[in-house]
Structure formats: C-alpha cells, structure tokens
C-alpha cells in the first residue's frame, strides 16, 4: 500500500507538516517495498483550492491512504470519493507515522477537521460529487 504523508521535507526522516493542502511536500511511502518518494506540493502556494490540488496530486501518485493533521471540506470530499483513507497524524517524522499506522496506532479521520480556507471565516458549499 502507498501512503502519502504531509511533510516539511522529502525524506523518510522528514518532519510531518500538520496541514494537508498547504504542506510543502508529500512523502509517498510504499509499505510493502519500503520505497520512498518525496514530491513537491505546488498547491501549497495556490490562492484557493489547495486541498483539492493536493488530493489530486497524491491520487495521481497512487496513494491509497493519507496521514495528515488538518484537512478541510474540499480535500475531504475529493479523497473520500476517490476511496482514499485518511489517518490523523501525531507529531514526529514521516517514518514514525507510517510505523504507527502499520501497528494500528493511528485513528482514521471520520470527517473534515479544518474550515474551508482555515483562518478566513467562510462557509463552504457541498461539492457536487458525481
């Protein structure tokens, strides 16, 4: 299984970034082969739609699960409809989070836990999921 972890860097020992859409990088870890791929998140600097862009990015990279701390309603809808599971990260490195996940130590996120455009008090609309 490929797991995408929102991160400050591109390596296994990089620190987890709590933000999903605005994380500068994602580290994609293949839990079977142990292969690690760090990818830049161009959406980190987007005006809007960063969460959707990040969901698209990691889906295209083949991730089936995400470890992150905070994601909003748009990103949530995109990941969920793509069948990508989300697990809530604690503090630490990418490697520590993946180990925790494999040991069953990370809780799955049941709903978006950040506001749309967190910081700007705006109300989102439900996307039209097809």
């Amino acid at each position: 299984m490929k797991v995408a972890v929102s991160s400050r860097g591109t390596e296994r020992m990089s620190v987890v970034d709590p933000r999903f859409g605005r994380a500068p990088y994602f580290v994609i870890v293949n839990t079977e082969s142990g292969e690690v791929d760090g990818i830049e998140n161009p959406g980190a600097l987007a005006g809007t739609g960063a969460g959707v862009a990040a969901a698209q990015l990691i889906a295209d990279a083949g991730a089936e699960a995400v470890i992150t701390s905070a994601l909003g309603p748009h990103a949530w809808a995109a990941l969920k409809s793509g069948g990508i599971q989300v697990f809530e990260a604690g503090r630490g490195t990418v490697d520590a989070m993946v180990q925790l996940l494999l040991q069953g130590g990370l809780a799955p996120l049941e709903e978006p836990n950040a506001d749309l455009k967190a910081g700007a008090a705006r109300f989102g609309q439900s996307p039209d999921v097809k």
Binding site: G49, A59, H74, A78, S81, G82, P127, D128, V129, K130
Partner: peptide, 11 residues
C-alpha cells in the same frame, strides 16, 4: 480522483 469526478463550483 480515480473513478470519481468532482466539481467544486464555489472555486
């Protein structure tokens, strides 16, 4: 995203 197509009209 995989087989899902999503449109976010507010964006």
């Amino acid at each position: 995203i995989r087989q899902a197509v999503l449109t976010f009209h507010d964006l």
